[in-house]
Each structure stands twice: as structure tokens, then as C-alpha cells.
Design a protein around this nucleic acid. Structure first.
Lengths: 255, 255
DNA sequence: AGATTTCATTGATTGTCGTCAACAAATCTG
DNA sequence: CAGATTTGTTGACGACAATCAATGAAATCT
């Protein structure tokens, strides 16, 4: 917070992929050193984005995909009537911009939630590279497929789950993602606003706020502003799955 | 309906990709005849599936993706508590099973909604083929990306839209997809049940039923069982986008 | 064909969550 | 640091859609 008063020239402190702790998260390829070197060479490191800045906006020409290096960001689209719809939150090691591959320009925007640095991967160069690297090609397909899978999970959440199930699922999911990155799975910082959370989960801000309060009253979490402490992850996981009005009354569908 | 009493040997009446009217829909690649021939060779035509039969179930080992040839099917996943969640409906020319590429087995099931024939494309063979065909590789990425984009659209629908907006959007979307395939965009047959529609749209069956009735009363559609006639597509499109309680009252967000 | 089951429609009622509104806290700005 | 703006919390109220329940219509089965 206090060390980055003066922006220094990033290009000088560029870090190679092979030395990046996130490397196996963003492109977990099984390639040799030589291939990795090639991959590394096309990747651009850009100056960090400040909170609120856009990596790209809706309609921007698609040129590159991005890997989050540090910080976090959100992607969002616009409904026809000008409403923002948060599509996802992205933590270090995650890729952004995959939904633009098909088209000419970005169908959604990416905005930094805090000071965030990313690796820019020009897509045409990546494709060229992949032409001669079957492993990379296959990896790309897997990454996109995984993204589809994640979206399907979110679809289930929005289609079936009640408000508390949604928030519980959200917290549990974040917890797992932080853990995977070596951060605490019990305690973390929510870089997104309540508004963004509600938007993402298909809930009103007020509902999110109330739920945080209720979860806290029930001893599930301790919430202090954007700081979250999960006191009972098991119970939260339970709520994320089975709960709501049906769980108590009777067998839901005979299973 | 009356001609397929005896199942005949499908392998004899196999149709080449290059002669398939759907070819440019399912794999719109810009490849030469020779490449197309290679692609065609790995594709298997299987006997048609009857209504209710599964192409694959949740947890089945992933071996192939499928292109719908005729008929239609639904894909669905299971929530933790055993509830079915319809992920999508698939018309001729659309690919199924893309969310399994990342893993070992299918995360969702695919079930025929009517008598349906598909092309089975063994994925390992497809990858081998793509290793030597950059265009195919790139095409695959684009197809997956498109799928992601579609999921995002559905996310917006489930996250923000009211019940009538959802059904309107559903009908308009189906209409466009039928049109693309050379069928009527005004008049079509809903192969899926009301239950499936509701499940897909995150609504109760009863709500779907009531909405159909209401849309009919308002002269937007004529519904007769599963047969749908769109009387006012423009108005439906309008409802699919802007409507609900906010549209009338005041500017939603200053835009 | 009749019986059984599945599917679709309609009505009555309840509950969850969104909306409106006011307030508090924090962050931004000059 | 004070004022302004954004962001988060809490309460009251109402609406939309889910649930419960009953009936009707098709489709499937024997």
C-alpha cells in the first residue's frame, strides 16, 4: 500500500512464466522448458490496473486473453435495457476474456476490483504457438471446457437455489478458490461490493446484506465490512447444497 | 412415424459430412475437401435414439462429443440434493458434451426429447485430427467460446429477468434457432415438456403454463399443446428485453 | 378399447425476496 | 477536516411467483 507511490517501469521487473507461482493455475500445461520459453515470450506484462479501471470494455476489439496475476476483477455484461450483469469474479491464476474468442469483440467488460496486475496473452500469437504445440492446444480446449462447466454450476445456482443457498455457495466457492491459491480458506477479503455480489447471485443488495447479518447471528461467519471469517464451513457447505423450505418439510423428490 | 417399424442397419445409409445440410452449423470449418474427408471418417452414425433414451448419463466416461442430426435433446445436471437442472436444449446442428472435455466423465446427461439421430465424434480422434489441422483447432476453440457466450446469456436471463421476460426470451430464441435451420420461425413444435421449460428458465411448471395462457390472451402467441405459433415476434422480443415492474415506473439506472 | 399414468391447466394461498425509504458508515474531494 | 458522495445496514410493505390442491386432457400400457 505504501511502497508503490511511484510507478516504476514494469517491463524491467518482468517475471518469466516458469518462475510464476500461478503458472500451473492459469495454463497448467505439460510442456517442456523450451515450449514454456516460447509461451513466455508472447506474454506481455502491463502496468497494474487501479481499482475501477477496465482491462477492456464491452465492444472493445478482441486481441488478447488475460491471466490475473495479483488482485481481482469482475467481468460483466449488459442486458438489453442497460442493466449490468456480473458474470464472474476472477482471482489470481484465472483467465479472462475467453468468451470473446468466438467473435470480433468483447461481449463483456473486465474491471479491476482492486489494484490488479495481469498477463496479457495476444490471442493470435497464442494460436500460432498452439499450431505447433498439440499439448497447448489441448490444454486450451480443456480450459474453455472448464469455463463452460463453471457456468453450468452458476446456472444451477441461479435456477434452483434460494437466497441463503446462493450466498452460502458463493462463500464456500470463494473459500475453495482462495485455498487453491495458497490463501486462507477461512478468512479472506471480499474485494467486490455487496452490490456486485447481489448482482452476481441474482439478489438485491439488501438481501445480501441481511443474509450476512443473519449468517453472523447464526454463528456461521464473522463479517466486518469486507473482511470475512468463515466460522463453520461445513455448515455453510451444507446450506449451499440442501436447505431452503423443502429440506425441513419432506423428501424433495423421493430420492 | 410408420416407416421405421423395423430398425435397419444404419451403417449402410450413412451420409457423408460434406453432404450433410447441417455440416456448416455443427463444424463450420473452412477446410478443403480432403480434410473434410478425414473428419468424416472418424464420425460415427448411430441408430436414432428414442424419446427418453440417454446419449449419456451423468458420470459416464467421456469419449465423444455429439452433433445433433435430427430431432432434439436436453442436457441436464443434478444439484447436490438430487434435483434435476436443465442446462440446455439442443437442436439439429448443435454440439453436445462440450462441458466434459475438461474431465474424465460427463458432468451432465443428454436425453432425447423425441426420436433423435446424432453423429458421434470420438474426441481423442478429433484431437489427433486437429493436431494436423490448425483450422479445425481454431474452430473448436471458437465453438467452445460460443458455448460460453450462450451460457452467459442464460445467466443474465436467470439473474435479472422476470417470469414473462424469461418465457418471451425463450420463445424468441427458439424462433431464431429454428429459422437458422431453415424451419419456420413463426410456427414450431416444442419437443420439451412444460416441466423442462420451467426447469430451464428457473420457473415452476404452473408459472410457465399460466404465462402461455396469458400470452395467448394477449394475442402474442397461439398455443395448442406443444404446437406454438408466434403471432407477434416483435412484441415478444420487446418483452424479452425490457419489461417487468421497472420499465413502467422510472428510469432504471439513469441510462 | 379401457385403464393407468403422465402432463397441462387453473384456482387459492403463502412466503420469499424485491422495492421503497431512512439512516449509518466509510470513502472521496476540495 | 468538513461536506459530499458512495456503500452498507435495517425496517416496513407489497408483489411476484412458488406451493398446495384439484381437475382435465393426452399419451402410454395391457
Amino acid at each position: 500500500m505504501s511502497t508503490d507511490k511511484n510507478v516504476i517501469n514494469i517491463s524491467n521487473i518482468r517475471i518469466a512464466c516458469k518462475d510464476c507461482s500461478l503458472f500451473q493455475l492459469c495454463l497448467p500445461i505439460g510442456v517442456g522448458e523450451a515450449d514454456l520459453e516460447l509461451l513466455d515470450r508472447i506474454i506481455k506484462h502491463r502496468r497494474p490496473f487501479r481499482r475501477g479501471e477496465h482491462l477492456f470494455r464491452i465492444g472493445d476489439p478482441f486481441q488478447a486473453i488475460y491471466a490475473v496475476r495479483a488482485g481481482s476483477l469482475k467481468t460483466y455484461a449488459m442486458t438489453e435495457d442497460g442493466h449490468e450483469q456480473v458474470i464472474g469474479f476472477h482471482l489470481p491464476g484465472e483467465l479472462v476474456g475467453l468468451d470473446a474468442i468466438n467473435g470480433e469483440c468483447h461481449p463483456c467488460a473486465a474491471k479491476a476490483l482492486e489494484t490488479t496486475s495481469v498477463c496479457e496473452i495476444p490471442f493470435d500469437r497464442l494460436e500460432e504457438l498452439a499450431d505447433h504445440m498439440p499439448t497447448l492446444q489441448r490444454q486450451l480446449l480443456r480450459i474453455l471446457s472448464k469455463e463452460i462447466l463453471q457456468d453450468h454450476n452458476l446456472l444451477m445456482l441461479l435456477g434452483k437455489k434460494s437466497a441463503d443457498e446462493r450466498l452460502a455457495a458463493f462463500l464456500v466457492s470463494l473459500s475453495a478458490r482462495f485455498k487453491r491459491r495458497g490463501f486462507s480458506s477461512r478468512e479472506f477479503y471480499l474485494s467486490m461490493s455487496r452490490n456486485d455480489i447481489g448482482n452476481y447471485l441474482g439478489l438485491a443488495v439488501e438481501t445480501v446484506s441481511r443474509l450476512f447479518t443473519r449468517f453472523q447471528e447464526e454463528g456461521l461467519v464473522t463479517v466486518q465490512r469486507k473482511h470475512i471469517l468463515l466460522r463453520d464451513i461445513d455448515e455453510l457447505s451444507l446450506r449451499a447444497g440442501v436447505s431452503g423450505p423443502m429440506a425441513s418439510s419432506k423428501s424433495v423428490n423421493g430420492v
